[in-house]
Design a protein around this nucleic acid. Sequence first.
DNA 1: CTAACTACCTGAACGC
DNA 2: TGCGTTCAGGTAGTTA
Length: 270
Amino acid sequence: MARVPELPEVESVRRQLRPRLVGRRILAVDAVSRGRLHDVARAAGHRVLDVRRRGKYLIAPLDGGLELVGHLGMTGSFRMRGEDGWVPDAYVRASLRLDDGVLDFRDVRRFGMLRVTPAGDYSAMSTLARLGPEPLSAEFDPVGFHRRLASTRMPVKPFLLSQRPVAGVGNIYADEALWRSRVSPRARHVGRLRARALWAAVREVLAEAIEREGTTFRDYRLVDGQGGRNGGHLRVYGRAGLPCVRCGRPLAKTVVGGRGTTYCRVCQRR
DNA sequence: CTAACTACCTGAACGC
DNA sequence: TGCGTTCAGGTAGTTA
């Protein structure tokens, strides 16, 4: 089962992190793990100005022209030391010592990332550098989305997961949006009407999941340790073999672009 | 330039 | 019970 933080999960974490961090000074960063922690010690002495999000990336501008960029990977979470009964365990990869507490970055599988970089310099993060528009912003429009889909021969699902046509869609919400818009995950040509339907579906599934503070299967946790409430609302992800709620036929499970993919063979024809 | 591959990581689920 | 194998998956790096 999945536990992948995608845009709604990262946005929910951002909303809890922001009031805890803005205005705080980072005294030091203790990097416990040798994993994907880059230049994190450079954050020492700098004050947090904001906590923003682009796609699945958390971006905290610091004074002095720096940014702390974070990615939860598969299993990353942030917890405040001593809040809600949180006690650090063996999976804490880095700890930010603040002027009023300690923020722990916990990450079982070490796919998460923390990096301090000059503001706006994403040259070491190619996906962030080439990230598509925010799905819930006006820059994400159906005409431009259709144009982007027509610019590649990749199957639509792997193209969505590349983060280039739109930011923040991962495996769960890709399957959900494709099912809603009746687009086959393997489609290499998406017409204007189907592109518009997919555009609307992407926005709907993400907005609804944000309202429920994300989808939790196991590892994803909010800063207060709670899980999201979107799990019971998924229509296809994790429901392989169960009946499609639209047509009643069993949902199929396959692999597209190397990813497990659940879809309806009847509703989502090419 | 794009697209397709692989490595990274480790607990859970599965098979015998 | 216990051990080995397979699976999950986002990103970055490499190769074609």
